[in-house]
Write a protein that binds this DNA or RNA. Structure first.
Length: 263
DNA sequence: GAAGTTGTTTATTA
DNA sequence: CTAATAAACAACTT
């Protein structure tokens, strides 16, 4: 599922393929993904326009346009990008297709259609108005500790809340807490400052390495819970059984003996 | 074929 | 007002 590292990877992909080319036409196959815009407005805005550069905040990707602000993309659970040269094998299934004047296409596919497509005039006010927290890679240790010390919810739920810190989802939250040896149901506000610091440091380290590996899960196999999401597996540390529990409405995997519960 | 899956939004309650 | 909680949505897998 696209979390922060995957979205960073999409950003790099667009930077490498789709910048500085005039858009000849677009196709919109899933109008229900549009937020605060319409098919006509999106088409009028993008046609003849140019992708200039990109900016990521949490799991949101913003593409700056030569004219008229930014194109906003959110990848939901199944969003994906493919830049390709149309031939007989295509078009593949897409929700949005960008056709460049050079003949290449950029397809945004989203099998389960939980993604979002929109136009944004000002990225900072978009983030502020919707209440999203600082990006997980940009938040300072002091800000992180202050925010998590005043939340009484489970630490896993807090980590996944985009309005506290933006970018961490279900799978990375499990891995961060396993590395930090903290039980996901621990109350955020009772964790010692030293533990919050560890969580912060592991969050940065894991996200950064995932980005360096282009979010390729096959290169992240040493992260146990990123790759082994099943109940009853042997914990690589203590050889005990891993557990599954629904926390914050999401399936959470953890090692009950290695990960200490703070209440 | 009913239940499980995740990121986000919305509704409800404290 | 803020914070916490639960449910809803999409569409595909088990």
């Amino acid at each position: 599922m696209p979390e922060l590292p995957e979205v960073e990877n999409f950003k790099n992909y667009i930077d490498e393929t789709s910048l500085h080319q005039k858009i000849a036409a677009i196709q919109i196959a899933a109008p229900e993904l549009l937020v605060n815009t319409t098919i006509d407005i999106l088409r009028d805005t993008l046609k003849g326009n140019v992708f200039e550069d990109t900016f990521r905040h949490g799991k949101f990707l913003f593409i700056r346009l030569l004219k008229n602000g930014f194109l906003m993309l959110h990848f939901g659970m199944t969003g994906d990008l493919l830049y390709y040269t149309p031939d007989k094998k295509y078009p593949k299934v897409y929700v949005l297709l960008i056709q460049f004047e050079n003949g290449r296409n950029l397809a945004f596919s989203d099998q389960r259609r939980l993604g979002k497509i929109g136009l944004v005039k000002n990225v900072e006010s978009f983030i502020k108005d919707r209440g999203y927290g600082k990006d997980a890679l940009k938040i300072s240790l002091e800000e992180f500790i202050a925010l998590f010390q005043k939340r009484r919810i489970a630490i896993k739920t807090a980590l996944m809340n985009q309005k506290i810190v933006a970018g961490v989802g279900n799978e990375f939250s499990d891995e961060i807490l396993f590395q930090s040896k903290v039980h996901p149901e621990s109350k955020s506000n009772v964790l010692p400052i030293e533990k919050l610091k560890e969580i912060y440091q592991h969050m940065l380290a894991i996200l950064q390495e995932a980005i360096e590996q282009n979010a390729d899960r096959s290169k992240l196999e040493h992260y146990f819970f990123l790759d082994h999401r099943k109940e009853g597996l042997k914990c690589p540390e203590c050889k005990g059984d891993t557990k599954l529990r629904t926390i914050g409405g999401r399936s959470s995997y953890f090692c009950p003996s290695c990960q200490k519960l703070y209440t």
